[in-house]
Amino acid sequence: MTNVGDCSKYIIHQTAYIKVVLHAVNHKTSAVNAVLLGRISGETVEITDSVPLFHSSNIGLLPPLEIALITIEEYYSAQGLSIVGYFHANERFDDLELGSVARNIADHVYRYFPQAAVLLLDNRKLGALQNKKDTGPVIQLYTRDSSKSWKQVESNRQLTTKEPSANIVLLDFISSEKWNDIVDFDDHLDDISKDWLNSGLFK
């Protein structure tokens, strides 16, 4: 098996990218997280979809996380997709570090899916994007090194968006307040009629 940490290039598709950022925008005063789905081919990881997980006190609890991971893995494995990463956005706007809660959850995901990498929202980049001063992804990439620690990957060439227009679409979604339509696993656990797949988001 190829581990994500051994790979050199990470490509995130527009669908996966927009979902995780909108989820964070929807819950500006809370930490939020998501699971990243995709495929590994040689030294390239393609993140094709994402599932927003939690935005409440559930974020650090293992039982809800395990329920979510089992449900998500069962659904997406039938489509030939695997869990290839974890996304986290911090509670505070100016917090740009991968904190202990995020690292613990990432370690748990890694234990079950040893190919997992971590994406962390960078609010500075998101702000620059809204001012049209930045065109790269508004997320930072972390991988697990040989010491089993999560280290930020400094090269911005290692993480790219699949579609060059992804940030333009993201800005359009933010300005039209599309983030109000995002459903996460927290919402689904509260009301099982809510669609955690967000099937209608891009329609």
Rank of each mutant, 00 (worst) to 15 (best):
T71F: 12
R124A: 13
A117L: 14
H55Q: 01
E46C: 10
Y76A: 12
S147I: 03
A128G: 06
T135H: 11
Q140A: 14
Y75V: 06
A78D: 13
D145Q: 04
V84S: 07
D134N: 12
L53Y: 05
R92E: 15
A116I: 01
Q79M: 14
Y75G: 01
N104E: 13
N58P: 01
L126F: 11
K148Q: 14
L126V: 04
S100R: 13
I72G: 06
L126Y: 10
S56I: 02
R144S: 03
I59V: 05
G127I: 09
L129P: 00
A116C: 02
S82A: 12
R92T: 10
G80Q: 02
V45T: 06
S77D: 12
V118T: 13
A78G: 07
G99L: 03
L141H: 04
G42M: 03
E46L: 08
I139L: 15
H88C: 06
L126A: 08
S149K: 06
S147V: 05
Q130D: 08
Y112Q: 14
I47G: 00
K148C: 11
L65P: 11
S147C: 04
T48E: 05
T44L: 06
Y75R: 10
R103T: 14
I72N: 09
V138I: 13
R144A: 02
F113C: 04
S146T: 13
N123A: 07
S82Q: 14
Q79A: 13
E91T: 11
V101N: 07
G99Q: 10
K133C: 10
L121D: 12
S82T: 08
L96I: 09
D107W: 05
L61I: 14
D49I: 02
A106C: 01
K148L: 12
R39G: 07
A89K: 01
L65S: 09
N90G: 09
I83R: 00
S100F: 10
N90L: 07
A89Y: 04
A68M: 08
T44R: 07
S57C: 11
L141C: 01
Y112F: 15
G136M: 04
I47A: 03
P52G: 03
N131I: 06
P52E: 03
P64Y: 06
G127V: 11
I72Q: 05
N123L: 03
V118Y: 07
A116E: 01
L53G: 08
S56R: 02
R103V: 08
L120W: 05
L120I: 04
T48W: 02
T71K: 15
E91P: 01
S82D: 14
K148P: 04
V51F: 14
I47R: 00
S41W: 07
S146F: 10
Y142R: 02
L141P: 00
S77W: 09
S146K: 13
P64D: 06
S77T: 15
A116V: 02
Q115Y: 08
D49M: 00
H55W: 02
N131C: 10
L65Y: 09
H55L: 00
S147Y: 09
T48K: 03
E73A: 15
Y110W: 10
P114H: 07
S77M: 10
H55G: 02
F54P: 00
I139R: 00
